[in-house]
């Protein structure tokens, strides 16, 4: 089974999925990420699916679960780089990925996380 590497950049964890995911790899990634968030005290998680050709309900649920777990551990999750064909298919499948933030690409994902962080600080200062 292939494991997806988790990279750390500042207080953001970045996962770039480059392989056709087996269900076990998906579950392993879910665990790895939760551990890494606690270990590093990351504020944000970015999952880059630019290279992913299909997202079925299993992978879709994994994305939603990761977002929910991370939020509980005080980290925001952003899924970036979803292909148009994948997005259209997900809509048809009936999967809305509720609670998952999305961005067009890695750069915009980082900007989104910084923006969320910034507004939280601003709210606290008020």
């Amino acid at each position: 089974m292939d494991r997806v590497p988790v990279l750390k950049l500042g207080d953001i964890l970045i996962v770039s999925i480059q392989i056709d995911l087996q269900d076990q790899s998906v579950l392993a990634l879910q665990e790895d990420l939760a551990n890494k968030v606690v270990e590093t005290g990351a504020r944000g998680v970015i999952i880059d699916i630019t290279a992913v050709e299909i997202v079925d309900s299993f992978i879709g649920r994994m994305l939603a679960t990761i977002a929910a777990i991370s939020r509980m551990l005080d980290a925001e999750t952003v899924v970036v780089g979803m292909r148009p064909a994948v997005a259209i298919t997900l809509v048809e499948l009936g999967l809305s990925l509720g609670g998952v933030r999305t961005a067009l690409n890695l750069e915009k994902g980082v900007a989104l996380l910084n923006h969320i962080d910034g507004s939280e600080i601003a709210t606290a200062a008020r």
């Binding site: 970036v80 979803m82 148009p84 997005a87 259209i88 997900l90 048809e92 990925l97 999305t102 067009l104």
Partner: peptide, 12 residues
């Protein structure tokens, strides 16, 4: 409608 939802999934 689906296009709008799909765009959201992509971050737009």
């Amino acid at each position: 409608l689906k296009t709008v939802v799909a765009a959201r999934l992509m971050g737009a």
